[in-house]
């Protein structure tokens, strides 16, 4: 936000500053009401990832990478995958568990972090490595 030359124009930056919080809250709402109405973990997680992508397209990659880098995304993805493995195999141990909302939250963390890391890899890291290869 200090550096005005990175990213898109000032109009896009202002609109992004206004809308990105709303998109994030809408994604969390879709996740949390997934066991009551339409929605669920996958769709909500993709909306959360889209809000991060929106921020990155408007402000450039450095603003977002300072808060959410590759290591943190990989940690969240792996952690959520392990937690979901525990949730779904815990049905072997006892009766039918009432865990739809919990599974929704875990899947949303997994999908949001994973899809944002895929976007980072496909858009940012490929560009860097191609430029590095040309030098």
């Amino acid at each position: 936000m200090k550096n005005d030359t990175v990213g898109m124009s000032i109009i896009v930056k202002t609109v992004t500053r206004l809308t990105v919080g709303l998109i994030l809250i809408y994604g969390i709402y879709i996740v949390l009401q997934g066991h009551i109405g339409p929605g669920g973990g996958f769709a909500g997680g993709v909306i959360v990832a889209l809000s991060l992508i929106h921020l990155m397209l408007a402000f450039g990659k450095d603003e977002v990478l300072a808060k959410f880098n590759k290591a943190r995304g990989l940690f969240l993805t792996s952690f959520a995958a392990i937690v979901f493995l525990l949730i779904s195999t815990s049905r072997f141990l006892g009766r039918q568990s009432k865990s739809v909302a919990l599974s929704d939250i875990v899947i949303s963390v997994m999908v949001g972090a994973g899809l944002f890391v895929i976007f980072l890899a496909l858009v940012v890291f490929i560009k860097d490595s191609l430029e590095g290869a040309k030098k």
């Binding site: 066991h35 669920g40 973990g41 993805t77 739809v100 997994m110 895929i118």
Partner: peptide
Amino acid sequence: GSVNIVSLITLNFRGFDALAEVAVLFTAV
């Protein structure tokens, strides 16, 4: 205890389908 039957079936009765889906996404990342 869940009202939305679709997400209930995919996450609870057919929970292993969702587990395989998560495994596919993790492998893709």
